[in-house]
Design a protein around this nucleic acid. Structure first.
Length: 901
RNA sequence: GGAGGCAUAGCUCAGCUGGUUCAGAGCAUCUGCCUUACAAGCAGAGGGUCCUUGGUUCGAAUCCAUGUGCCUCCA
């Protein structure tokens, strides 16, 4: 690779776009991300498979950046890192898209056979599937692409079917007629987790139901108060179209207002069906009128009531959400439920059945995928018996609670436990075609006769005495029923349970995912891990936040507030985008995305780039040609940076151990920007047009390389580019495999006094508006001069000082201005008249502050209870504080004196 | 309605088991600087009643309680 700096514009700005694609191809060519089992320790991550037809959004960017950081770091640490990519067939979402595409072509799904439809779907998948994976490459994701899997490919589908059969055998799966969440647009059942509740403004209609026997329309309470005089009861509902399916009215048995009506009948408006008034404690007396209409076919709770009281179930809706003939009223049959809702309200009003209409806010369930309003519907579905499943696998909860599987942040454990402890059975059948078809077989009467992979196996199972025909279940399985097997199935752990891969890579290490799919996916993977591998599927779960815009709105297509990640990458470079996302994303916290963060990321790249330009621009001479004083100083500086670097490495290790990636990155940011660029490079930088000595240069390159290695997981592209630029590398070498820095436990080298003195002088220059070119003469007045003496050269260089005098007895005079540096003084000679009063003022203020501080410390120390109760070393520290403050005050007083007080 | 969480600088957050990490970081703002790697930069500065009110304690941003506001999940 070239050793030339080729990507710099005339102004010194770098252009990340120019090398990112180059390096990604290089990595692929050299198979750096490919993993095969070997003797090394494995480090495995399976990607949360994105929808096969999806496109990259900001959430993916965040999620995959984090995974890439973890996997790249592990790879550099010498582990056998394996990041398995893939996509999810996403039955509802994909089927909806294919149906839409066909509709645009003028083809109706209902006109196609199952096979015809599926061939269209596969065609669509081949064409658009995997776009998202290509996009991940732009981000720098170091997935092992040779291992790319798809949840509907043959081997994974087989696993799904086998698992279904296995669970059925174990008695953990059953088929039952139950109330489910029905998506009238997707025409399928949904699990509870796929229903999203949204608050909507709706209306509460108060409808009069005439009482059949009018004589009893009057009522009295036990103390003779008249409370009811109308010949009807009033019932409040938000869904007036469902009255056509009412089969009872229910009141609370304790409700004085209605006690006398229990057992009587009312008529449903328009259709005049006579229904009974029953009593059950379930009814809330304070909601609406306290009188509930019971519609067992269209409400979960009503269904339960219906079962309890043996009520008729009248389903008035078609699978598309239209009213059917059971609604009885010709005006409404064949119309959409929302159309009917409006119309029936008008009709009821005209007919005098409406008492009043109120504005009302309520929660309406909608389909996560199609957005359609969910209708509770009674259908035959397949279920996983979760209670039984968990009784069999108690580790599912225990492993998380005991941190065997660690959640980051840990407070997600509570949510997890709550869900597990209140778990409901999982509805796994979907009335769709795109997905794994349920391996259940029915005879001509529609009775379940076998659960088997193929028709032959099914027939064999039934036995030779059977001579009729059997048909396979029309439904497919919930997509999550394949996703929950993902960490096992990507390694063919079902097909071949003892293969090399599954034995090596499973259990995986980290899972990075969004908190909203904890139930859909994370919990269920834990279940499948214990059920089929008898082990946890991963050791750490990192929950990312939700990416929101600056106004805290969730980023979404419909709001149009989400930037296109690829545009961002094109504008700022992948490294900048990665850094921008990570800087503000502590685990579990939502990210308020703002383009300025990405800009900051890019600026950081620019900083690093310019450090590189600086170093590469130096002329190198042998040590013998350079003044010894410079070399000595450079050696000290190098040792200082080495120690500082070591300190940050161990700090970063700690942050990674806690999965605090944004803090690790911030530590790195400061190390590079402040310690390396602002201090170290300035310390060793030769004077204008002067050469640098060889040993210093070599050491600097070494430090630079170490920094690049440390940074590489976060910013893979620029680090690779510079790494190759610093020294010529062999073809095929890459920073991806460079050893990750390890903390050596070096002793900290304290330059703080030197730095403070330099900063104080720079400060003075700034305050007085003096040019940095003007060199000063200074006197250092310190009890312990060694800290300054050993760095005299540096002080001169970095603060532009012409002469340093060490004098313990010096006094500031007319032209000598005193700067306090910790407990010492730096006197700077200025060729200008000092505003003595202003200086005195400044010093006076400082003294006052310190005296106040002393007072508070004294108060503590003179408090017997403090001295007796506090830890001894703490008391000692307070004494030290006092001593320091005293010393500082005396220094300041001296300064005051010498100013002529 | 149930469960959990959060409230610290203009913004985003850190602050573990109370006391030198105790009022911090980054960004933003302001003031100087085109200083020979970098204006995508350099050198500085300002900025907070640690949400309210009580309590525990020698000592509270930190622990407890109350109120308020916000968020998430579940029904």
């Amino acid at each position: 690779m070239s050793n030339q700096i080729t990507n710099t514009t005339e102004t010194g700005k770098f252009n990340p776009i120019s090398f990112e694609d180059k390096w990604y191809s290089y990595w692929l060519q050299n198979k750096l991300f490919h993993s095969e089992p070997d003797e090394r320790e494995p480090f495995t991550i399976v990607i949360p498979p994105p929808n096969v037809t999806g496109v990259l959004h900001m959430g993916h960017m965040l999620n995959n950046t984090i995974q890439d950081v973890l996997i790249r770091r592990a790879r550099m640490q010498g582990k056998n890192a394996c990041w398995v990519p893939g996509t999810d067939h996403a039955s509802i979402a994909t089927e909806a898209k294919v149906v839409q595409m066909l509709r645009e072509k003028g083809i109706k799904k209902s006109d196609l056979s199952r096979d015809e439809f599926l061939s269209y779907a596969w065609e669509w998948k081949e064409k658009y599937g995997g776009i998202i994976l290509e996009q991940l490459k732009k981000l720098g994701a170091s997935c092992d692409w040779d291992r790319t899997r798809f949840t509907m490919e043959e081997s994974l589908s087989d696993a799904v079917i086998d698992v279904f059969i296995d669970l059925h055998k174990k008695g953990l799966i059953y088929r039952e007629l139950r109330m489910v969440n029905w998506d009238p647009q997707g025409k399928t059942a949904l699990s509870d987790e796929e229903v999203i509740f949204k608050e909507v403004n709706s209306k509460l209609y108060y409808i009069k139901y005439p009482i059949v026997n009018e004589n009893t329309g009057k009522g009295e309470t036990s103390d003779g108060q008249q409370i009811w005089s109308q010949p009807y009861v009033i019932i409040a509902t938000t869904r007036p179209e469902t009255i056509l399916a009412d089969t009872a009215v229910c009141v609370n048995p304790l409700d004085e207002r209605y006690k006398h009506l229990i057992g009587m009948k009312v008529k449903v408006p328009f259709i005049n069906r006579e229904i009974s008034i029953i009593a059950d404690e379930y009814v809330a007396m304070d909601f609406g009128t306290g009188c509930l209409k019971v519609t067992p076919a269209h409400d979960k709770n009503d269904y339960e009531l219906g079962k309890k009281y043996n009520l008729e179930v009248i389903d008035t809706l078609t699978e598309e959400g239209f009213l059917n003939e059971k609604a009885q009223d010709e005006r409404y049959i064949g119309k959409d439920r929302f159309v009917v809702r409006k119309q029936i309200a008008i009709d009821l009003e005209e007919a005098g059945f409406i008492d009043k209409i109120e504005e009302y806010k309520n929660q309406v369930g909608t389909s996560e995928r199609t957005g359609a309003v969910i209708e509770p519907r009674l259908t035959l579905q397949w279920w996983v018996d979760m209670k039984k499943f968990l009784e069999k696998n108690p580790q599912v909860l225990d492993a998380v609670m005991s941190d065997e599987i660690k959640f980051h942040p840990s407070n997600m454990k509570n949510t997890y436990r709550h869900w597990i402890e209140n778990i409901k059975d999982w509805c796994i059948s979907r009335q769709l075609w795109w997905g794994q078809r349920i391996p259940a077989w029915y005879n001509e009467k529609g009775e379940l006769v076998a659960v088997a992979k193929t028709k032959e196996e099914a027939l064999a199972q039934i036995g030779s005495s059977f001579n009729g025909d059997i048909k396979q279940d029309e439904d497919v399985l919930d997509t999550w029923f394949s996703s929950w097997l993902w960490p096992i199935s990507v390694f063919d752990g079902f097909k071949d349970p003892n293969n090399k891969d599954i034995n090596y890579y499973f259990p995986t290490n980290d899972l990075v995912t969004a908190p909203e799919i904890m139930f859909f996916w994370v919990a269920r993977m834990i279940m499948s891990g214990y059920e089929w591998k008898g082990n946890l599927p991963f050791k750490n779960v990192y929950y990312t936040g939700i990416v929101r815009d600056k106004q805290r709105r969730k980023m979404s297509k419909s709001l149009g507030n989400s930037p296109d990640p690829l545009d961002l990458i094109a504008q700022f470079g992948a490294d900048g985008v990665r850094m921008g996302m990570l800087l503000c994303s502590p685990a579990g916290n939502d990210i308020l995305f703002d383009e300025s963060q990405v800009e900051q990321g890019r600026n950081f790249g620019n900083k690093l780039w310019n450090a590189y330009r600086l170093v590469k621009g130096w002329e190198i001479k042998p040590d013998a040609d350079i003044e010894a004083e410079i070399i000595t100083s450079n050696q000290k500086s190098g040792a200082w940076f080495a120690a500082r670097f070591d300190e940050v490495v161990s700090e970063i290790d700690g942050k990674f151990a806690d999965y605090k990636l944004s803090e690790a990155l911030m530590a790195m940011y400061k190390l590079i920007w402040d310690d390396f660029c602002s201090w170290y490079l300035e310390m060793i930088k030769p004077a204008y047009q002067q050469p640098i000595n060889q040993s210093t240069y070599d050491e600097c390159i070494n430090h630079f390389n170490q920094l690049l290695s440390l940074l590489h997981p976060f910013m893979p592209f620029i680090t690779e580019e510079i790494w190759h630029g610093l020294e010529t590398k062999k073809e095929g070498e890459s920073i991806c495999l460079a050893p990750y820095p390890v903390a050596k436990g070096l002793k900290n080298i304290d330059f703080s006094k030197t730095f403070d003195a330099i900063t104080a002088i720079r400060n003075l220059r700034n305050a007085k508006g003096l040019s940095p070119k003007e060199a000063f003469k200074i006197i250092i007045k310190a009890n312990d001069e060694t800290a300054y003496q050993s760095n005299e050269f540096l002080i001169k260089k970095l603060a532009n000082v012409s002469e340093v005098i060490f004098d313990k007895t010096a006094e500031s005079g007319q032209n000598w201005i005193s700067l306090p540096v910790s407990t010492d003084q730096v006197l700077v000679y200025l060729e200008l008249n000092i505003d003595v009063d202003a200086e005195k003022d400044k010093i006076q203020k400082e003294i006052e502050y310190l005296q106040g501080f002393m007072k508070s410390v004294d108060a503590k120390l003179s408090n017997e209870k403090f001295v007796n109760n506090a830890k001894p070393d703490l008391v000692e520290k307070e004494r030290q504080k006092k001593a320091d403050a005293e010393a500082k005050i005396s220094v300041l007083l001296e300064s005051l004196n010498s100013l002529g007080l």
